[in-house]
Computed example of a mutant assay.
Amino acid sequence: MDEIDRIRAFNRAHTRRLGLLRQGYLEAGLSLAEARVIFELADGIGWTAGALSQHLGLNEGYLSRLLSRLSKSGLVEKTRHPQDGRAHILGLTRDGLIRAAELTALSRAQIESWVDGMPEAELAQLVARMEAVEASLARQSAPAPEVELRDLAIGDAGWLVEQHGVLYARDEGFDASFEALVAEILADFIRHRDPAYERGWIAWQDGARLGSIFCVKGPEPGLAKLRMFLLLPEARGLGLGQRLLDTCMSYARETGYRRMVLWTHESHEAACALYRKNGFSLDSAVPVTSFGVDLVEQQWSIDLAG
């Protein structure tokens, strides 16, 4: 038996010992997944469904069905998120807190029955070995290298032109005129950038570029323009978009800009939702034909002094 088979054998034995194959977890009338959700909510962290889904590694649709059942059972409740009106904070009801306490007591009793009579030194050794296993597995699943935001440098402009051209052609059907526009914007920035009032950032992780954002001067004093906001598909959902936007807006405020504007398209739903979440207002939406396709151009703005 090799190492992989020995790990599999341990998992099977531990699964059987915990009773995870039975219809109800700890004979408490709940599935293992339902009990785990209750345990997590009992910690009082203030999970949203999306965050809890990622934390537990559960499909969002499956978790939604679990939460629905627990809600109908009177164990889970939702309250409006104080900073994001579209999101909800999950929590336990009074009955849910009682059930969580019951599950904790049952779980402790189960473990206590296993180690009852075990010499103290042997128990301490067992716990130390379990912690060593957890630490070893945690190292294997350590977070990816930190994302670094760097100033625009040699080679970045060419990468930006290529990525804008390829991604927008693939995802939205843009023709080559969009790639030409991006090249013109970048050429103007490189040739005429005012370093006291304009800056571009490129997001890097583990030697690869993931995205960008630029702050440039607008057509009137005190007005900043947000440009070149790009995230590669593999970088989406990591919070990098919010970090880039925060960095750009903070720079604009620190530099003395009073207002920021940006131009985008209605089809960029994720980006538009991020703008709205951060206080931008939609000023205009105009149907146009650009880059070989029909679009709705949007202008957004925000008062940076507010």
Score class of each variant (00 low, 15 high):
residue 287 P to S: 09
residue 220 E to H: 10
residue 277 K to L: 15
residue 122 E to V: 09
residue 304 L to A: 12
residue 142 A to S: 09
residue 46 G to T: 03
residue 43 D to Q: 14
residue 140 Q to Y: 03
residue 258 R to C: 12
residue 117 G to K: 08
residue 117 G to I: 07
residue 65 R to G: 10
residue 151 D to G: 15
residue 306 G to D: 14
residue 89 I to Y: 00
residue 167 L to P: 00
residue 38 I to A: 03
residue 66 L to M: 09
residue 233 P to N: 10
residue 140 Q to W: 04
residue 42 A to R: 08
residue 166 V to C: 03
residue 231 L to G: 12
residue 37 V to W: 02
residue 90 L to M: 08
residue 27 E to V: 05
residue 33 A to M: 02
residue 264 T to E: 00
residue 173 G to K: 02
residue 65 R to Y: 10
residue 120 E to T: 11
residue 267 S to A: 09
residue 10 F to K: 11
residue 229 F to T: 06
residue 170 R to S: 15
residue 25 Y to Q: 11
residue 11 N to I: 07
residue 254 E to C: 09
residue 236 R to G: 11
residue 75 L to E: 01
residue 303 D to E: 08
residue 16 R to W: 02
residue 38 I to T: 05
residue 245 L to P: 04
residue 226 L to H: 05
residue 73 S to H: 13
residue 215 C to A: 15
residue 79 T to S: 15
residue 51 A to Q: 07
residue 124 A to K: 13
residue 286 V to T: 15
residue 169 A to R: 15
residue 270 A to V: 12
residue 263 W to C: 11
residue 161 V to W: 04
residue 181 L to Q: 01
residue 36 R to F: 08
residue 127 V to M: 01
residue 196 A to Q: 12
residue 2 D to I: 06
residue 55 H to N: 08
residue 135 A to E: 08
residue 164 H to A: 13
residue 274 L to H: 05
residue 228 M to V: 12
residue 117 G to W: 11
residue 47 W to Y: 11
residue 126 L to T: 05
residue 94 R to Y: 05
residue 294 D to A: 14
residue 131 E to P: 02
residue 242 Q to D: 13
residue 17 R to Q: 13
residue 39 F to Y: 07
residue 80 R to A: 14
residue 177 S to Y: 06
residue 200 G to F: 05
residue 279 G to A: 10
residue 49 A to G: 13
residue 60 E to F: 09
residue 99 R to A: 15
residue 189 F to Y: 15
residue 7 I to H: 11
residue 141 S to R: 13
residue 71 S to A: 13
residue 111 I to D: 01
residue 5 D to Y: 05
residue 253 R to E: 13
residue 265 H to Q: 12
residue 291 F to H: 06
residue 57 G to Y: 02
residue 228 M to I: 10
residue 134 E to H: 07
residue 77 E to D: 14
residue 133 V to R: 05
residue 99 R to W: 00
residue 160 L to Q: 07
residue 258 R to L: 10
residue 241 G to E: 04
residue 169 A to E: 14
residue 89 I to G: 01
residue 188 D to V: 09
residue 162 E to M: 07
residue 19 G to N: 04
residue 187 A to L: 01
